[in-house]
Design a protein around this nucleic acid. Structure first.
Lengths: 215, 215
DNA sequence: GGACGATGCATGGATTTCCATAAGTTGCGG
DNA sequence: CCGCAACTTATGGAAATCCATGCATCGTCC
């Protein structure tokens, strides 16, 4: 097992719960940081590392489920709900929105630790994904407007000739744009570029359909 | 709104519930078919159309959640759980495993109808996806063993020369295989073939990395 | 044995892509 | 005004791909 290089955020309005959870995790060598309210959690400076959020549903300022919805937009650690007065609709909503688990107090320690493990693993995976995608987006950002027009045509499978006609420029010019795109996107081949474009959700605007070559 | 061309399967051991649900759906012009047990549902001949499965957790033969696990392997309609004695862990497990909703009796009619709507929409989408993927798999199945070796090399971005060397055959022969693959897979371009290979989860075994052409 | 499909190789030409070199316009900011 | 970035075009040769035609071997099935 790799070193547990991660942190667990705990948001609960009950000081005793915060203390108990903190000690429990500390006893297992897990770094933790507690917050008494949603607002406190949101405004706090959080370290940039794999994490997991243990969230109570009943909070003094806003509902835990609503907090889940609010932070759903940006990057946020996977959530494990831990509540004393949970009901089925809440749990359903929580899981539907991506929560790792929905536990009720008092909860099984093993179940909690397992949920934390899953959440952290998911976060690590997610962070890797976001990092990779971030690199691609950065490269895409470095393209000139014209190059951003060329890219979808190329990955659609158009010939240089056809793509050039589409843009109303000469084939030679398009070839240069295409070359620049390949370089800037660090694609080793057209196949690579197609996959990169797929990850960036670049739509296939034109396709080179001709004869219906069925089997 | 398109015509409601779908059917709702109801699995519940309580005859009164079956009857009530059947009438409720009939009153809304929704086709339904009832089953008294999981086994009855599994063995029954079910029409091939968009559907949705309303499932009770407590069944005479096996647990509803276990049934969900069993049919998870193959194609099955999205599940809406409807139970009288639900608990949070059950609901969490159900949703985690892909159930559309987890409702408790007596349940809100609107909620049930909404869940059915979501489930049917999801099934329609899923059927489309499976149909497309099925066509691709069929085409892939039509490839010869050698062609199935050539495909991953080609979509990895290797030059014909390199791919040929990889297989220990001449470049000419590889070109022929490549051509056949394109035809059989009905790919209009290499870009197309790369996307198709992606849908078929064909791994990129070799890549043509050379100079680290960073920005 | 013969038909058939899979695999293999070759030649040759048309098309396309890849690459470098050279050079022109436009528009913006220092 | 000068530099710079973006966009544009041209020429020319090397490399790769696309395509057709022809042919050989091997194993299987009828």
């Amino acid at each position: 097992m790799t070193t547990g290089n991660y942190i667990v955020f705990i948001v609960d309005d009950d000081a005793r719960v915060r203390e108990a959870l903190g000690e429990l995790l500390a006893a297992h060598g897990i770094k933790a940081r507690v917050f008494a309210s949603a607002g406190e959690y949101i405004t706090a400076e959080k370290p940039d590392m794999p994490a997991c959020l243990i969230l109570d549903v009943e909070l003094p300022d806003i509902n835990g489920l609503d907090l889940q919805g609010q932070i759903a937009e940006g990057d946020h650690p996977p959530i494990v709900f831990l509540t004393g007065h949970g009901d089925i609709p809440s749990s359903v909503r929580a899981i539907k929105h991506g929560a790792v688990d929905f536990l009720t107090k008092p909860c099984d320690v093993d179940a909690l630790l397992a949920a934390i493990g899953v959440a952290v693993a998911r976060d690590k995976e997610g962070r890797l994904q976001r990092a990779e995608l971030g690199v691609l987006k950065e490269r895409y950002h470095g393209l000139t407007p014209r190059e951003r027009e060329v890219l979808p045509l190329v990955v659609s499978g158009l010939l240089n000739k056809q793509a050039a006609a589409e843009l109303g420029i000469s084939e030679v010019t398009l070839q240069i744009h295409r070359r620049n795109v390949m370089h800037k996107m660090a694609a080793a081949s057209l196949a690579d570029l197609v996959r990169i474009a797929g990850q960036l959700d670049i739509p296939v605007t034109h396709s080179r359909m001709q004869a219906g070559g069925d089997l």
